[in-house]
């Protein structure tokens, strides 16, 4: 015969034993995890069409003015690279002054005051690739910051806290895309932030606004009606250095394997 005390005790133990595995399964419910993975209303993304870029450099000019990056230093939050591939297999790439003044000559800048002339008939393919911060889903620059001066906002943009940055330069080393540099005035890490002051007001970034050819687009890729999101979902796009696992959110149309 079971006593009343034991009956209550065993009942509670039994309920607890049943409840524990149920809650354990609840925690790792994969479909719920997947659904909650990106429940954010806004996730900013960028699309670059390398075929449309003509290398005019208006984007770089606008970016420098808009974001108060000293005009005559070579560093820039965004830049345009030129790739020239010759028929004999050479790959030449340059970005004079970050492409700020456009590409007005066929000569390739090799650095240290040296230039290379390429005859038009020797060119196999040649094109321009605009670059900017990829606002990675797994940003290594944020991970390495020892003081919490660089961070990712809820809508996916990586920002730098100029008051908190100690100027150690870890983030500059960590970025696989080389988008970070020291601001020559503030002496803190500097980077493209998708013109955060503009996109949060409903404007486009300065570079997107300045591009006459529609080679650059910005949008909220979590919005089902967004143009950038639609193109990323339904068309053939690629990202830079996918193998690093950083999940970059700047997508490219027409990338070539020579682009690093």
């Amino acid at each position: 015969m079971i006593s009343r005390r034991d009956f209550i005790k065993y009942s509670l133990q039994g309920i607890a034993a049943i409840a524990v595995p149920v809650t354990a399964i609840e925690i790792i419910n994969p479909s719920k995890l997947f659904a909650s993975k990106d429940a954010r209303e806004i996730r900013w993304g960028f699309l670059v069409d390398t075929g449309k870029c003509v290398g005019c450099g208006f984007c770089v000019k606008a970016c420098k003015n808009e974001n108060e990056i000293p005009y005559d230093i070579n560093a820039s939050r965004t830049w345009v690279e030129r790739y020239v591939l010759t028929k004999d297999g050479r790959v030449l790439a340059d970005s004079p002054r970050a492409g700020r003044d456009g590409f007005i000559t066929g000569r390739i800048e090799l650095g240290q005051g040296k230039y290379q002339d390429i005859k038009n008939e020797d060119i196999e393919k040649a094109f321009f690739v605009p670059k900017l911060c990829n606002q990675c889903e797994n940003p290594p620059c944020v991970q390495v910051c020892p003081v919490g001066a660089t961070y990712q906002t809820k809508d996916g943009v990586v920002l730098v806290d100029r008051k908190w940055c100690i100027g150690c330069g870890y983030c500059i080393m960590a970025c696989p895309y080389g988008v970070r540099f020291f601001h020559p005035v503030y002496h803190t890490a500097e980077k493209c932030n998708f013109c955060y002051h503009r996109i949060t007001k409903g404007l486009k970034t300065a570079c997107v606004e300045a591009c006459p050819f529609g080679a650059r687009l910005i949008g909220n890729i979590n919005d089902p009606n967004d143009e950038v999101g639609r193109i990323i979902r339904t068309e053939r796009v690629s990202v830079l250095k996918d193998e690093f696992g950083t999940k970059p959110q700047v997508y490219y149309r027409g990338l070539s394997k020579e682009v690093r």
Binding site: G51, C53, I104, A126
Partner: peptide, 18 residues
Amino acid sequence: REQCLRCHSRLPYPTSDR
């Protein structure tokens, strides 16, 4: 002149709208 040449300096690059 440089402002115009950003686009109108002829660069007959294949695979680019330039």
